Amino acid sequence: MKLGVFSVLFGQKSFEESLDYIASKGLEAIEIGTGGYPGNAHCNPEALLADEGKLKAFKKAVESRGLMISALSCHGNPLHPQKPIAQDHHNVIIKSLELAEKLEVPVVNTFSGCPGDHEGAKYPNWPVAPWPPDYQEILDWQWANKVIPYWTETGKFASDRNVKIGLELHGGFSVHTPATLLRLREAAGDVIGANLDPSHMWWQGIDPVQAVQILGRAGAIHHFHAKDTSIDPININKHGVTDMQSYTNMLDRAWQFRTVGYGHDMKIWADIISALRLVGYDYVVSIEHEDGLMSVDEGFTKAVENLQQVLIKEPLGEMWWV
C-alpha cells in the first residue's frame, strides 16, 4: 500500500508548493480535486485538456517529486433536481474522466448524488425510513428513474476510457452504505466501486472493518480515504446519528470528524488496514483532513505519523511457516 493525501486541504498553496510539502512528509501519492464541492484550485480539467503542453507539465510536476496521482476527485450531485446544478456537476465528472484517461489515473472519485422526489422537485430528498410508505415510493422512483440510469450511462463512459468510478459512501446521497453501493454496482457494472471512507461508516453505526470485508470480497473498493470520527456519548443520545447541527458546533454535536487516531485508537486502524490487505486492496490510503480541532498542518502531520505505524507496505511473501 501507498500513503497519500487528498490535496484540497492545501488549496491556499500553489500546486508546486503543495507537491513539495507532501513529498517532504514521505508520502507517495496525491489525490487531486478537479471541481465540484472540493474545488479545482490545483487542477482545472478543461485547461489541461485544451493544452497538451500544460498537461505534460502537470504530470511531470507530480512525477518529478516521486509521487503518483491516485485519483481525481470531483464530489458533487449530478442527480440534483435543479437541472443547472446537476448539469454543472455532471460536466465536471465527464471532464475529470477524460482527464484521468489522459493522465493514466485509474479512478475518479465523486458522490452518487441524490435526486428529488418527482420531476418537478427543487431540492434533493434523502429517504431514510421505510414507513410511512411514501418514503419507499420515493426511493423506488429515484433508483428506477434517476440513480440507475445515470450511473449506467456514466459508468459506460468511464469504462470506455479504462477509468473506474469511486463513489464515496456519504449520508445525504443515494449511495451511502455498502448495500446501496452494491445495489448500484449490480445494476450499472463493476466500473462502479467505493471510495471507502471509514469516517462516514462510524457515524452511521457501521463497522468499517466489516464494510471493508463486505465490499472487498466483491472487489468493490476502488479507493480509500483515511479520516476518523469521534462520537460524543451524551450528545449522540440527544441528537442521534443524523445530527443536523453545523459542523462548527463541535461542543454540542453528536459526532465530528477527526484526524486519524483521534476518534479511534491505532489497533482499530491496524484492523482496517489488515482487512484491506486481506481482501486484496493494495492501492493508496489517502488522508483527508476535516478536523475542526486541529490546524491543517498539525492534523495532516499527525495522520501521517499515525498511519505510518500501521500501513502495510511490502508485497506479500510466501508463508514460510506453512
Score class of each variant (00 low, 15 high):
Met244Gln: 14
His225Arg: 03
Glu104Asp: 14
Pro133Cys: 12
Val191Met: 03
Leu182Glu: 09
Leu3Ser: 07
Ala100Thr: 04
Leu251Ile: 08
Ala218Lys: 13
Lys267Gln: 12
Asn237Trp: 11
Trp321Asp: 14
Asp160Thr: 10
His176Asn: 09
Thr229Met: 06
Ile138Phe: 10
Gln12Val: 13
Trp143Val: 13
Ala61Lys: 15
Thr248Leu: 04
Asn249Ala: 11
Gly240Met: 02
Pro149Ser: 06
His118Thr: 09
Tyr150Val: 00
Met266Asn: 06
Asp88Thr: 08
Gly155Cys: 15
Asn306Val: 02
Gly299Phe: 01
Lys313Cys: 12
Lys60Gln: 14
Gly261Lys: 10
Ala129Arg: 10
Gly155Val: 01
Val107Arg: 00
Val163Pro: 02
Cys114Ile: 15
Pro130Gly: 09
Tyr135Ile: 11
His200Cys: 05
Asp265Cys: 04
Lys83Cys: 06
Val296Gly: 00
Phe224Trp: 07
Ala57Pro: 03
Tyr37Asp: 14
Gly35Glu: 09
Asp190Ser: 15
Leu251Ser: 11
Cys114Arg: 15
Cys74Asp: 06
Gln87Lys: 08
Asp243Met: 02
Lys54Trp: 07
His118Gly: 15
Val241Glu: 09
Gln309Asp: 13
Ile273Glu: 04
Ala23Glu: 09
Pro315Arg: 14
Ala71Gly: 07
Ser199Trp: 04
Leu99Gln: 03
Leu184Arg: 03
Asp197Pro: 00
Gly11Thr: 13
Val322Gln: 12
Lys122Phe: 08
Leu97Glu: 03
Leu316Tyr: 10
Ile138His: 14
Ser199Leu: 02
Gln142Asp: 10
Asn44Pro: 05
Ser96Ile: 09
Ala41His: 14
Met294Trp: 00
Val296Ser: 00
Ala121Cys: 09
Asp20Asn: 15
Ile138Asn: 07
Gly36Phe: 08
Gly280Ala: 11
Ile148Pro: 01
Glu137Tyr: 11
Ala47Leu: 08
Ile206Pro: 03
Asn77Pro: 09
Leu139Gly: 06
Ile30Gly: 00
Ala218Ser: 14
Ile214Asp: 07
Leu3Tyr: 06
Pro127Cys: 14
Asn91Ile: 12
Leu251Pro: 01
His176Asp: 12
Glu16Val: 15
Val241Thr: 07
Ala47Arg: 08
Gln136Glu: 07
Met201Trp: 03
Leu181Ile: 11
Glu98Cys: 11
Gly240Lys: 04
Asn249Gln: 11
Trp320Val: 10
Pro78Met: 13
Ile30Lys: 00
Leu182Trp: 05
Gln213Pro: 03
His264Phe: 08
Ala254Pro: 03
Thr229Pro: 06
Ala211Gln: 06
Val105Arg: 02
Ser70Val: 05
Val108Cys: 08
Asp297Glu: 08
Asp51Gly: 05
Ile148Asp: 01
Ile236Ala: 05
Glu186Val: 03
Val8Phe: 15
Thr242Gln: 07
Glu305Val: 13
Val310Gln: 10
Gly116Pro: 15
Leu103Val: 12
Gly189Asp: 11
Thr242Asp: 01
Asp197Asn: 02
Val212Glu: 04
Thr248Trp: 01
His170Pro: 08
Leu215Phe: 12
Ile32Gly: 06
Leu3Arg: 06
Ala86Lys: 12
Ser199Thr: 01
His75Phe: 12
Gln245Thr: 10
Thr248Tyr: 09
Ala220Pro: 09
Ala188His: 04
Ile32Phe: 05
